[in-house]
Amino acid sequence: MTLLDHVPSEAQLRRSAYRRRQTVYSVLVAASSTAALGTLLVIAVTGAPGWDRVRRSFLDPEIARDALPTVLSGLWLNVRLLVCCAVGALLLGLVIAVLRTLRGPVFFPVRALAAGYTYTFRGLPLIIVLYLLTLGVPGLRLQGMPPVLVLGGIALVLTYGGYLAEVFRAGIESVHSSQLAAARSLGLTYRQTMRHVVLPQAVRRVAPPLLNDVVALQKDVGLVSLAGPIDAVRAAQIATAQTFNYTPYVVAGVLFVLLAIPLIAVTDWVTLRAAHRQSGG
């Protein structure tokens, strides 16, 4: 390997040493400015006249410990719903977006239905869809009605499927027509062109906004508690009502953020990678 044999020149050694010193210096500056700002914040908050009262009603460690199990079991519901609804909404969105690209008169009704769906569910507030499905549909008293939780999940999938379909569609349209011409000139059918050429590029390009919508979905899955099932926020609300102390909400909030961190980190990573690729790297 020539790379290992290479002996750096005098100038390169000086440059490397300078860069190392610069790195150490930047780390020191960052650490001291963070420490200074942190100290200021702590002094400002704990020094406030109402601090003691706020601490007792929002940050009571004993109440936090008592509320943790019920809030956690509520959170487990959020996690399960999130996973199922995210998968469902991504699939639905992808299918709707592809249906909307179909050309030819045979597909007119399919296209019209798909377009009507995205218009309706992007316009309709999630809460109304939830009430319609979890309260309205069981009112029909049909045989074999799925449980309220499943109906709530369907409401979430329908609403988010509408948003995600538009994101997918933007991705599909961003693939240049010369890519289609190249694929068709090789004899690939429309379906093969979609499957092997257009969709892989489209999905890669819109992965960051798709994941962003999944992060938003994570906060909205809790709304199924309006129909009865107990999620983390509802569990915290119940605990608060029993103790007249808001600490359980803080517990739920912290858990939500902890849950979101990996998802947001993945989103950032995917966004960075996409940006890197676009710049030709």
Partner: peptide, 28 residues
């Protein structure tokens, strides 16, 4: 599609598929 299988076309701007390796471009 059946006709295009008998005709090879090459474009000014190459139009390779950027998400596929050279080998996958050719074997698609």
């Amino acid at each position: 599609d059946r006709v295009r299988r008998r005709i090879g076309m090459v474009f000014q701007a190459y139009n390779l598929f950027p998400h596929l390796s050279v080998l996958d471009n050719i074997t698609l």
